[in-house]
Write a protein that binds this DNA or RNA. Sequence first.
DNA 1: CGCTTGCCTGGAGTGCACTCCAAGGTTCTA
DNA 2: TAGAACCTTGGAGTGCACTCCAGGCAAGCG
Lengths: 157, 157
Amino acid sequence: MTVTETETETTDAGADSCAGPPQGDRRPDGADRYTISEVAALTGLTAHTLRWYERIGLMPHIDRSHTGQRRYSNRDLDWLALVGKLRLTGMPVADMVRYAELVRAGDHTYTERFELLKQTREDVLARIAELQGTLAVLDRKISFYGDAGRALASERT
Amino acid sequence: MTVTETETETTDAGADSCAGPPQGDRRPDGADRYTISEVAALTGLTAHTLRWYERIGLMPHIDRSHTGQRRYSNRDLDWLALVGKLRLTGMPVADMVRYAELVRAGDHTYTERFELLKQTREDVLARIAELQGTLAVLDRKISFYGDAGRALASERT
DNA sequence: CGCTTGCCTGGAGTGCACTCCAAGGTTCTA
DNA sequence: TAGAACCTTGGAGTGCACTCCAGGCAAGCG
């Protein structure tokens, strides 16, 4: 029962500062009814993309004003922050939709979500390793170009 | 034609373990005239993609047999290995084409190539940092799920 | 000799992740 | 209360990186 997905996120706001848009402009809980353009500004996504995310099932049900306009909550912002992180890993949107479905389905999907996160973690580690391999290649090439700058040797590649 | 011996490649074909393709099946320089399907097996790219790379200017001029079929050299394989690494970084194909053009243009583009490589290096470092940020988020979430899992387990006991 | 396999070409098609449009209704500012 | 600036929808369009197709040439084999 205690496996609700959401509570950690609310404290997550300033946790990772390096990447992503700053989310310091939040309103306190209770007054958190952001329009779509506010959310666009906060997340760096376009309003188009936010509506599209909703259409494909990547967002939970978004609250609406009495006239039908979207009103996003801090919790929605938390979810979008997670989605943004996952997107950075190269995870396909379809997989994120799958995760969103699991969250919506309730606590009994806990194990599956856990496995999905662990798999994603492995993928991220693998991608970091790949990038470090590429970095080594680049460094070799850069130092070659640096040397060639003095020697002015003719080269291919 | 010379495709009789090349069945050895089939062992390597599916063995695409983790990072770049192992390039241990090369022939010595001087005997390096690979068909397009051999190169496909060695690089993990499809023949379609190899022809497409050529069409968009991402490959240097590829040698041809007397009947017009492509014959790739070890040098071409080296270039493809670099392209593969750059592709892993998420560099757009258009940028790689730009780099290829600089290489074709000759030695006087040395500085520009150097700058491009250094910029790419910065991009890779930034992406690694992003991924490490994401990793932190995932780890926090995973440990939360782990705790919740133990809680559930102990509840059940 | 025909059959199969591999290769050639230009151009069309695919899948993903947005991105935009038209035609309205709503909310804020002066 | 006017008008700008926002919001709504379904559906169509875009850009990237392939991916495939049709129609044909070339070589090895029984």
